[in-house]
Simulated assay, not measured.
Amino acid sequence: MLTEVIATRYVTPLREGGSLPGIVEADDLGTYIMKFTGAGQGRKTLVAEVICGLLGRRLGLRVPELVQMQLDPVIGLSEPDQEVQELLKASGGLNLGMDYLPGSLGFDPLAFEVSSREAGRVVWFDALINNVDRSWRNPNALVWHGELWLIDHGATMIWHHNWPTAEKSSAKPYDASDHVLATFAPDVPAAAAEFAPQITEDMLTGIAAEVPDEWLVDEPGFDSPDALRRAYVTTLLARAGMISDHITLGEPSKDKPSQAPGWLAGKPPRRAVK
């Protein structure tokens, strides 16, 4: 299971986007980016962070370590921002932490070179999880110690916002034309050959088991957290078997509206984490 830590000090909010994550210190002496259950996007974004973040790490991609974080809202009493105060009050209990990468910079495709192999691996991974939020508009990637790190997977697996249509939705092709790494000649066939055989039922079942029960309860159409976990496994397994032949890399559409869901549309580019 994911390591569980206790938040000991709320440091500062990160004001990119609408979820208002915060930098938080924990009782293991680590520093994390905390993503809150009380944020407007809801707990499904945390489920997506866990499943897709762990999947990326299992495939050998650089994704910051994830932890469960227990939060006592009292740690934010000195925070002067009323919006932050309300978020902390709404998020008491179990939240998600992502390892903080001090000194990292927001990825800029004009300033940082990525190999065709690595670009292909990231594009194939994003196609599998249907990541509509790693585009030139909002890269959701950092450069740390000269290497590319992938962050923010809350806008993936869009089908889990409407499970009755999940089978149809998850079968859709993936248009990577606006992907932030599309200009690096992604070697998608090589990535498919490397990654597709690794996506097994056992692998996905183990990853889904890492999601806390309390983020999975009361989902319409499912009688238990395990039943919902099974739906994630089944959907991703089916997509892994078909997505390699359904990835499109065309000319980027600079004037095309974002494919991100409404609650992410219009999010400004991520600033460097300092």
Rank of each mutant, 00 (worst) to 15 (best):
G206P: 08
P225S: 01
T165N: 15
L150F: 03
D255M: 07
L249P: 00
G241F: 08
S169D: 12
L148G: 07
V217H: 10
S169I: 15
R134Y: 11
H246M: 11
L216A: 07
D226E: 13
V132Y: 12
P139L: 04
I207T: 08
A208N: 08
N130S: 14
T205V: 14
P268Q: 10
M157G: 02
S135F: 06
G262K: 01
A272W: 06
A227I: 02
W159S: 10
F222I: 11
V211H: 11
S258W: 05
R137F: 12
S177P: 04
D202N: 13
W144P: 06
D255R: 14
F125R: 04
W136V: 08
P257F: 09
L142M: 05
D218S: 05
P268Y: 08
A238Q: 08
I158P: 09
W163C: 05
V188R: 06
N131W: 10
A196P: 04
D255A: 12
G206I: 07
N131L: 10
A265G: 11
D245F: 00
H153R: 07
G206C: 03
L128G: 08
K254S: 14
D255I: 15
A171G: 13
E251L: 14
A227V: 00
T183W: 13
F125C: 01
R239F: 04
D133F: 10
T165S: 15
M157T: 05
L142V: 06
P197V: 07
V132E: 07
I207C: 07
D255G: 14
F222K: 04
A209I: 04
S177N: 03
F195C: 10
A155D: 14
E194T: 13
R134F: 03
R270M: 14
E251V: 14
A231F: 03
A171V: 00
A166Q: 07
F222P: 07
P139V: 13
D226C: 12
T183A: 15
K267E: 15
E219Q: 10
A192G: 09
V217A: 10
P252V: 09
Y174I: 04
F125M: 11
L249W: 09
T234F: 11
P261W: 05
G262A: 06
L181R: 00
L264W: 12
